[in-house]
Amino acid sequence: MTDASWETLSNQAVAAAGVVYFLALLAHLVQWSSLRKVPVGSARRATADAAGEALQDAPVAVLERDPGEERRTALFARLGLLLTVLACGLHAVAMLGRGMAADPNRVPWGNMYEFTLSGTFFVTLLYLLFYRRLGLAWMGPLVDGFVVTMLMVAVIWLYDPVAPLTEALNSPWLVIHVVSAIIATGAFTLGGFTSALYLLKARAGDRSTGYLARLPELPVLDRVSYRLHAFGFPVWTFAVLITGPIWAHQAWSSYWSWDPKEVWAFITWVVYAAYLHARTTAGWKGRNAAWLALLGTATLWFNFIGINYFSTTSQHSYAAPEAAVVSPVDA
């Protein structure tokens, strides 16, 4: 295949993935809306079904609901998951195509478009990987909705044709640094969703119908959020405080130079450290910790999107890579 056809393949795969994510979102919406008016008692069963776990030992007698509807809900839950898996596969093809289209072949994270493509891919991938272990069935509509939105943003506003990397980006450390940063971003994003839902559910109180009522109990949400952050934090540490400085040392002669991108990565790191502390500090547990998690998510995404537009001095300019590296000398 030629570079051009890889690029076309990538673009088509992005479009296809977007459509399938959208269908997955619809499936999840049907699933949750058919439960909209049903009180929570039977809901936990539906969630468990969706996770494909408690099917065999579900006490059928407890059900007060129409079994047809029950089946329909389970069906859409499964359909949503299946479509998400399919979309994730297409998403992977899109990334592969981007990498193969470049000459020389490379990892697909040279600019904002590619970074968004990869970032959202890891959001989905981590969601699927943690699906069972952390019981994330309830997160389906959020993940699909978020990823499809970000893909649209990427395609409409951030699109950049395939291009070779600037010289400093051409390093094996880039691969390790960025892949770990993206994985951590994915985990933190999922953790941020969880903390946001924690806060919404805490505010909603004891409602017995609707999406919020069907979410896991507050302590469970809190724990899931902690697990996601606890996974993300060491990965982020590795990306920002180990591989980032190693690469910066090689490319810019200084392993830490308080470049705005570095500053914000550091801020994110400190905020998440504060989150981990907050979870074990009386008076900060629960709600305040969840707010800190959201603050962390905000700094994380601001660093990715905001800094490229607001800061004038960042060397990490994905947005304008030409001038970034072997830079002119100003006397």
């Binding site: 308080w258 500053v263 400190v270 905020v271 504060a274 500090t281 900060w284 700094t299 800061s311």
Partner: peptide, 20 residues
């Protein structure tokens, strides 16, 4: 622990101006 937490947040906040 509470002071550590506040100092962490303060560090994060104090780092902001230098990026702007």
């Amino acid at each position: 622990m509470r002071t550590a937490l506040l100092l962490l947040l303060l560090t994060a906040l104090a780092a902001v101006p230098g990026s702007v």
